[in-house]
Amino acid sequence: MVDQLPAHAEPGIGRWTPYRSVLAARIRAQRSYRASFAIDTVSAFVAGLVELAEVWVIFHNVQVLGGLDFRAVLLVFGLANIGFSTAEVMVGHVDTLPAVLRAGTLDIYYLRPQPLLAQVVTSDVQLRRLARVGVGVACAAIALSVNHIHWSQATVAMIVISLVFGTVIYSSLFVTAGGLQFFLISGSEATAAFVYGGSTASTQPAAVWPGPLKIIFGFLFPVTFCAYLPALVILDLPGPPMLPSWLAWFLPVAALWAAGAALATWRLGVRHYQGGGG
């Protein structure tokens, strides 16, 4: 029989199966290198601590910076680290696109019946970065207990919104970086400016920034929405000029903007790769 159909996707097989299968294999592979996994986890943890130490050293010299004391900054730091590290666990490797392009792996993704971005995102998961999420969780927990907070439903809602949509914003930065790297040869340093710069910026009290920085990291790459503005709402503090604290409630809008820009950049990047202009 020559007319036989190829083995098409069985409707009964879930559409998430391809991704789950790849991810499960990645996790198994990481667990099988126990020694290096352990030391990677430790260094991710230390990286989180050192970043905290940088903030702490500054507050060792002054009591209050940009309207926040160390306890308040600890909350900003914690929220920012949870969001950024979670994004890094899930989509951080999109930032390594130049290596993927060099190895020709992207052409292989074209041969599989899933969207390219979904394949790249689910091609790996950086479990060791979970250690840094742990640092963030510890800082946020300590900050929430040592600060005087008037707990209400709004406080809880703000924390949840901050964690969920903050992660979306950070993930969008990684995807934007990936999309730009289709155009930039050895461009990972340039995109590090807003990916890792964004991570650093979001741990700072944005009140210390001059206007241009507020525009760049407040709105263009809206990382102040991830931790600083929510922390102001949670601690019931006023915001600096240009960044009033009520803006925090627009975090989902900021996330939408970041995600939309990320997807558009990615699409442009893929079109550039295929040579369709753009």
């Binding site: 083995a7 996707a9 069985e10 009964g12 097989i13 559409r15 199966t17 391809p18 789950r20 299968s21 790849v22 294999a25 599989r112 019946p113 899933q114």
Partner: peptide, 16 residues
Amino acid sequence: ESFAILGDVHRMPSAA
């Protein structure tokens, strides 16, 4: 394992 994953990528029934 690569083949098991590719089977899932193409959403083939596992017996097939």
